[in-house]
Lab assay of single mutants.
Amino acid sequence: DTLHVTQDGKHIELRGLSEEEIKLVEELLRRGRKVEEALKIIEELRK
C-alpha cells in the first residue's frame, strides 16, 4: 500500500508498506517522529 505524508512542507509518498506498517508509521508521526526515523524503524522491524 501507499501512504501519503506531508512533512516540513514536503509531500512524501511511501510505497510498498503493509497495512500494519502504515499504521505504525502513522502512529510514529503522530508522536512527533520524522518520516526518515519512522522508515528506519520499519526497516529494522523487517529484518
Rank of each mutant, 00 (worst) to 15 (best):
D1I: 07
D1F: 06
D1Q: 09
D1L: 15
D1E: 10
D1N: 14
T2M: 08
L3I: 13
L3D: 07
L3M: 10
H4N: 07
H4D: 08
H4V: 15
H4W: 08
H4K: 05
V5F: 02
V5G: 06
V5Y: 01
V5A: 04
V5E: 05
T6P: 06
T6R: 02
Q7H: 07
Q7S: 10
D8N: 07
D8C: 03
D8H: 02
D8L: 02
D8M: 02
G9C: 03
G9I: 04
G9H: 06
G9Y: 01
G9N: 06
G9L: 03
G9Q: 03
G9F: 02
K10I: 15
K10G: 06
K10D: 11
K10T: 11
K10S: 10
H11R: 07
H11D: 14
I12L: 08
I12Y: 15
I12H: 14
I12M: 08
E13H: 09
E13N: 07
E13A: 08
E13C: 06
E13L: 10
L14C: 06
L14S: 03
L14V: 12
L14A: 04
R15G: 10
R15V: 13
G16W: 06
G16V: 03
G16C: 06
G16M: 02
G16S: 04
L17C: 01
L17P: 00
L17F: 10
L17V: 02
L17W: 04
L17I: 03
L17S: 00
L17R: 00
S18P: 01
S18K: 06
S18L: 07
S18W: 05
E19A: 14
E19P: 14
E19I: 14
E19N: 13
E19T: 13
E19D: 12
E20W: 13
E20Q: 10
E20Y: 13
E20S: 12
E21F: 02
E21Y: 03
E21S: 01
E21L: 03
I22N: 04
I22Y: 10
I22R: 12
I22G: 08
I22F: 09
I22P: 00
K23C: 06
K23Q: 12
K23D: 08
K23L: 13
K23T: 11
K23N: 09
L24N: 04
L24V: 10
L24Q: 06
L24A: 05
L24M: 12
V25T: 04
V25H: 01
V25R: 00
V25M: 08
V25K: 00
V25A: 07
E26P: 00
E26M: 15
E26C: 15
E27D: 13
E27T: 15
E27Y: 15
E27H: 13
E27M: 15
L28R: 00
L28P: 00
L28E: 03
L28A: 05
L28M: 12
L28K: 01
L28D: 00
L28T: 05
L29W: 02
L29Y: 03
L29P: 00
L29V: 05
R30Y: 12
R30V: 05
R30D: 04
R30K: 10
R31E: 07
R31H: 08
R31M: 13
R31Y: 13
R31G: 08
G32V: 01
G32Y: 05
G32S: 02
G32D: 03
G32Q: 02
G32A: 02
G32I: 01
R33S: 11
R33D: 05
R33Y: 14
R33E: 06
R33A: 13
R33C: 06
R33F: 15
R33P: 01
K34T: 10
K34H: 10
K34M: 09
K34R: 14
V35M: 06
V35W: 05
V35Q: 02
V35R: 01
V35D: 01
V35A: 06
E36V: 10
E36M: 13
E37S: 06
E37Y: 15
E37P: 01
E37Q: 10
E37M: 08
E37A: 09
A38N: 00
A38Y: 03
A38S: 05
A38E: 00
A38R: 00
L39M: 13
L39Y: 06
L39P: 00
L39S: 02
L39I: 13
K40W: 14
K40D: 10
K40V: 11
K40Y: 12
K40E: 10
I41T: 08
I41D: 05
I41M: 12
I42E: 00
I42D: 00
I42M: 05
I42V: 11
I42N: 00
E43F: 14
E43I: 06
E43G: 06
E44H: 09
E44C: 08
E44K: 07
E44Y: 14
L45F: 10
L45D: 04
L45Q: 09
R46L: 03
R46E: 01
R46Y: 03
R46S: 03
R46D: 01
R46N: 04
K47P: 05
K47F: 14
K47E: 10
K47H: 13
K47A: 14
K47C: 06
K47R: 12
K47I: 12
